[in-house]
């Protein structure tokens, strides 16, 4: 059973989704996270144990991404493999047998329509065991505030790709912090820097999806 769980973690890291998936080439024809998770559950492995193996696999691929050993496509394949696991574990989340690490509300700020970067971050964070509420693009402050009201135990992520929309991001950060001082806000996007994040009063800045995961996981330990 330990070997089976270990294999799930390996498939996450390698982005092996299922048996018919041609990726990665050296694992063609082998079971992926889809089949292995089913087998593990049928063998009596607990969902928590499977999730731990998945998180370890996601951490390994994330670390390799941080070292520029792999790039966004590999990270996305890992997230897809993770989603295959989550499909099997969904009933356990619904019954409360296992819990998501937390709730993450994400959106691209008002005036900005870029969604690729935001979507990547959302997928990777979801793959790391968080419940993600994606508010989409061109999201005004009021919509973020509504989402927080619906589930105040959350962390908020704001994305912007234009220097012009950074002003809207700053405004949204301030409005969130005014109404919900304890809510942690992380910002990201091409024009952002740690300095800009500090100036607008955000709690964190992530230059990539893995940075956002690290911020969220660190927040859980506080």
């Amino acid at each position: 059973m330990e070997e089976l769980v270990g294999k799930i973690g390996e498939c996450i890291e390698r982005g092996k989704v299922n048996k018919s998936s041609p990726y990665p080439k050296d694992m063609q024809g082998q079971d992926g996270t889809d089949e292995l998770t089913r087998q593990a559950l049928d063998s009596g492995v607990g969902p928590e144990e499977i999730l731990q193996a998945c998180n370890a696999g996601m951490k390994r691929i994330g670390d390799r991404f941080s070292r520029n050993e792999v790039f966004v496509p590999e990270l996305l394949m890992a997230a897809k493999a993770m989603n295959a696991v989550m499909a099997h574990l969904k009933p356990y989340f619904q019954t409360g047998t296992v819990k998501a690490k937390g709730r993450f509300v994400i959106g691209t700020v008002a005036g900005d329509l870029h969604d690729i970067g935001k979507n990547l971050v959302a997928m990777v964070i979801e793959g790391n065991g968080w419940e993600v509420v994606d508010l989409g693009v061109d999201v005004k402050s009021a919509k973020f505030l509504d989402a927080i009201r619906q589930g105040p135990e959350c962390t908020v992520g704001l994305s912007a790709l234009l220097t012009t929309t950074m002003a809207n991001m700053s405004k949204t950060v301030q409005e969130i912090k005014t109404q919900f001082p304890s809510i942690r806000v992380i910002v990201g996007g091409a024009p952002l820097t740690q300095r800009a994040a500090d100036q607008m009063g955000a709690d964190g800045y992530a230059p990539n999806p893995q940075g956002a995961v690290a911020f969220l996981n660190a927040g859980r330990q506080k």
């Binding site: 996305l76 394949m77 997230a79 897809k80 979507n119």
Partner: peptide
């Protein structure tokens, strides 16, 4: 097309298309 792929199960191809 890229957006469609990203939302409907082929994120790597969606990203590469973008």
């Amino acid at each position: 097309w890229s957006r469609h792929l990203l939302k409907h199960g082929d994120p790597a191809l969606g990203y590469i298309a973008d």
